[in-house]
Design a protein around this nucleic acid. Structure first.
Lengths: 337, 337
DNA sequence: TTGAAAGCGTTACCAT
DNA sequence: ATGGTAACGCTTTCAA
């Protein structure tokens, strides 16, 4: 393997000078610089990241921590994050908490010393883990739920849910169901509870009669949502509209309606939240969230923190908006309920 | 930061002994071992991965290279891979080629020295990149398309396409369309061409009249497929069945049919390949592939290679099978075409 | 079984 | 502007 010493020898300078010209921004004589560059190129020299890290204390790696990857939101934001990090000269170490026990504290210690910073995607740490993160003294940026007092990029989940409910109410719906409460334990995730609470609040604000039995728990997948929603859709007295806490679950609701024989939106209106890639093609009414913007903002925040800058905007909120498509319609005047 | 020297001092032994007890499997006196363990625990000692790497030459990191992440296959296999790697004591460095120019050779040199091995997910490198990989002398395992002479885990794409066509033919369809040819350039990806070739071959084998105009190119997304398939679905003479090269595109076909006003499967049968999470709930007939099995096999292969073992099975094929659901049906006797 | 010490390849401080 | 040279924290060979 060719080392910095080889380059130094070929260029006729010291290793210190090679290091400076190649990385350090220190002033180097243009001619020296050229000699070194030429030597490095000739030898096809690539510095050892490992040695650089040990000597400098920086790794140029960022841990990207996510509870899951099999969901649209995470898969989407991770590609943006990887691209943005790359532009800034960082690599992404992927940490997926899925299948991890309650305490992933040990896990964090395992990668802590490998990275210069942490990007936490909707992770809800235990108090012990929080303390542990605190102790690492690493720059951290959270996406989604708040994480301690670290800078955060997020959407207004409550507002998203509220505007969804308002849309349905404006169409005349008064019997609204909801899929995606958090009864089912979701380690490391907290979006579910925020959204369901917003749902109940929105129902109250709209002056509708609450129907707690129509707010059902479900894993956040299409499959699970379909199975869970089937019961309330089959009931004699059923909601005329269903809001799913995610588009993925909304797809499940659409599937359930189909196999039950209910027409959408004639028999039941369905909407989701996210604006999943499939939403447009399936005609799903939803609340759009700009995932790429969240990824970009998060990386920008983290990079500036890793450079030692104090974040000017410790809280970035990315706006969401309603996209009305074909799965929602005004309540039919002759309603079966 | 607490270093190995601190632990050694507290335990009253040398740093060499600490290193041995903590990592090296060398024989250490049980009592010494205990003293060291206690000291390490008391000090909350975690070895510096960076220093370990520099000294040992191993990084315990594996590069997971994928052309994309926004598609079901990649997102799904990456979580399995991350979990399996973790079990074996490795971390996953995520490299997404998306948006990269033709030559990502430079990219590879950037991370090569950071990792002990490479997991290449359906990446099609340029000859120059291949040579570069060769030069790295790193253990590599490919998933999907073949990559040089490295061990590989894959499904039989041709067989999958063939059984899909056979299914449609057995239902009486003779006018079969196909979405997902590779006219549109797909850097770093080669599944498209393999599948489309298999499609044409299967049509031939079945003795059907080829309709090249019904084999259409499309980006591998639901949106694009919907737009692209619309034209042939609106034509006076249209196929009675459409095979999409992926379930994601099949969803697009379903969407297009819906907005054109075509009933599925009465007016047109639709099927995909993959068995995407949404397939079951949407009733999509498809060819199932076990993505997790592919991920597990790939990691097993790579780990054994990184341990210096010669792979016993340099080529692992994971079986696929047809799942007939509700988007395909026998050709209606009174066919409009 | 244990310890001493020579690396591992860079960075960064201190001279010059 | 450049060079010499301690670190950086650990592994591993060689002796004891």
């Amino acid at each position: 393997m060719t080392t910095i010493a080889d380059v130094a020898a070929l260029a006729g300078v010291s290793v210190a000078t090679v290091s400076r010209t190649l990385h350090g921004s220190a002033r180097v004589d243009p001619r020296t610089r050229e000699k070194v560059r030429a030597a490095a190129a000739a030898l096809n020299y690539v510095a050892s990241p490992t040695a650089m890290s040990l000597a400098s204390g920086r790794t140029n790696v960022v841990a990207v921590v996510a509870p899951l990857m099999s969901r649209w939101f995470f898969a989407t934001i991770v590609v943006t994050i990887e691209q943005e990090l790359r532009k800034q000269g960082y690599h992404a170490l992927l940490i997926i908490l899925e299948g991890e026990g309650e305490d992933s504290g040990m896990r964090m210690e395992m990668f802590a010393k490998r990275v210069d910073g942490i990007l936490s995607l909707n992770v809800r740490p235990s108090p012990a883990e929080l303390a542990m993160l605190e102790r690492l003294r690493l720059p951290i940026v959270a996406v989604g739920m708040p994480l301690g007092r670290w800078p955060r990029v997020h959407i207004d989940d409550a507002a998203a849910v509220r505007s969804a409910v308002e849309h349905l109410v404006s169409l005349g719906h008064r019997d609204i169901g909801y899929v995606g409460t958090s009864d089912i334990s979701y380690a490391h995730m907290s979006t579910p509870s925020v959204r369901v609470e917003a749902f109940h609040a929105a129902i109250d604000e709209s002056g509708l009669t609450p129907h707690p039995e129509w707010a059902i728990a479900s894993e956040w997948t299409a499959d699970a949502a379909a199975r869970r929603v089937e019961q309330i859709l089959r009931a004699e007295h059923r909601p005329t509209a269903i809001l799913a806490a995610s588009d993925e679950m909304a797809v499940g609701v659409i599937g359930a309606a189909r196999w039950i024989g209910l027409e959408i939106p004639d028999d039941v209106s369905v909407m989701g939240i996210d604006d999943h890639t499939f939403a447009a093609v399936l005609g799903l009414t939803t609340i759009h969230q700009d995932v790429r913007a969240q990824g970009r903002a998060a990386v920008a925040l983290l990079v500036s923190a890793m450079r030692g800058e104090t974040p000017t905007t410790p809280d970035v909120e990315i706006p969401t908006y309603l996209i009305a498509r074909e799965t929602t319609a005004p309540l039919a005047p002759t309603d079966a309920t």
